[in-house]
Computed example of a mutant assay.
Amino acid sequence: MNITVIGASAGIGLLAVEKALESGHDVIALSRNTDALPDHPRLKKINGSSTSKETLLKATQHTDAIVITIGTKQKKGTTLFSDTANALVGISGHLRADIPILWVSGFGVGNSKPFLNFFMKMVICLFLRDQYEDKTRMEKIMEESKLKWEFIRPGILTDGPESDYEVITSLFKSMKVGKISRKDVAGLLIKEAEQPTMLFHYPVPVSRK
């Protein structure tokens, strides 16, 4: 199948590209700079911004699934996530109606905020507040669209190996959301791209360790 990865040059995005290629898929990788991506006969690289409708149209032609792993180092006033959501909704008429859009959000976004533990609450408050507020706006834009979305909400990301993890799909008191490796999140994204089972949900991958 054809999988588009938006935000493909580092972190979860790069790992998702590698996982998709290992699984035999064709990949369209969109990033502002694709130099870090490997050369591969089944990989098409596109340099550009996720907030550009023109670039998104180019990256999503003939695709069967869209994986979004965009991130930013801008801590204050970012609108990257909501701008990307608006651009995606803006081209929705050109997308196949059945394409799943699998977006890495974060635990603490939207209705999961009250379920944060004290440590994660402090980290987000001190360093990531504006990013998480914009991710909340992004989720709302997508929720109100006709697109088939799924928001993966990991906790604290690590560079550890793949692990034994479970996926929580509901919020409950005293739920424990700790560390999860980027490799695990990338694997979940490609698994859901191949066979979406949690559309219109907010899966939280949690390591069993």
Rank of each mutant, 00 (worst) to 15 (best):
K183S: 13
T79H: 11
I91P: 05
P154T: 10
T79C: 07
L126P: 01
K76M: 00
K76G: 00
R137A: 12
D98Q: 15
D130T: 04
H94V: 08
T78S: 09
L116H: 08
Q74L: 08
C125I: 07
I156T: 09
F107H: 07
D159F: 09
K73C: 01
I156M: 14
N117Y: 10
E166M: 12
E162R: 15
R96Y: 03
S105Y: 05
G155N: 00
K179C: 01
D64V: 12
G71K: 06
L188H: 04
T78I: 14
A186N: 06
L102A: 00
H62N: 14
A87C: 12
D64R: 09
P114D: 12
I101K: 00
K146H: 13
N86G: 03
Q61N: 10
G71T: 11
G178Y: 02
T84I: 11
R153F: 05
K146I: 11
K135H: 02
L171C: 07
D98T: 14
V185D: 06
E144A: 14
N86I: 12
I68C: 04
G106R: 06
L188C: 06
D98F: 03
T136K: 02
E150F: 08
K173D: 15
P100S: 08
F115M: 05
A186H: 02
F115D: 02
K173V: 15
K183I: 08
S170F: 11
I124N: 01
P114A: 00
E139A: 06
D134R: 12
N111P: 07
S170I: 12
V177R: 02
D83W: 06
I99N: 03
R129C: 03
G108P: 04
L157S: 05
A65I: 09
V167Y: 06
G110D: 13
I124R: 02
I152P: 02
S163F: 07
V185L: 03
Y132H: 14
K75Y: 07
G178K: 01
I141W: 01
P154Y: 00
I190K: 00
D83Q: 15
K148P: 02
A65W: 04
P154A: 08
T136C: 05
T72E: 06
L128F: 12
I141K: 06
S170R: 13
R153C: 13
V167K: 00
L126R: 11
L95F: 03
E162W: 01
A186R: 08
F81D: 06
E150I: 13
S105G: 09
